[in-house]
């Protein structure tokens, strides 16, 4: 492989990896936000805890 090939491999993997990490992180964040919202809605919709009478 020529020097240019190594330069392309170096920049390609580093910048491409960075872009992939950003996209993965944003997708993880969106999924977590949706899950958190769903859990909160379910918690709001759940019947209140019955009073033990004590």
């Amino acid at each position: 492989m020529s020097d240019v090939g190594f330069v392309l491999a170096g920049y390609g993997v580093i910048l491409g990896g960075l872009a992939m990490y950003v996209l993965t992180l944003l997708r993880r964040l969106r999924t977590a936000r949706e899950r958190s919202l769903r859990i909160r809605k379910e918690a709001d919709a759940a019947p209140p805890l019955p009073d033990s009478g004590r």
Partner: peptide, 30 residues
Amino acid sequence: YLMIRRYQLARIEWQIEEHGRVGRISAARR
């Protein structure tokens, strides 16, 4: 940018964990 986003994700994951824990305690109490 990555630090802020990863921090936000960690906080939400922790909240989800907390919800799960509270849910399990509520179910046991019920």
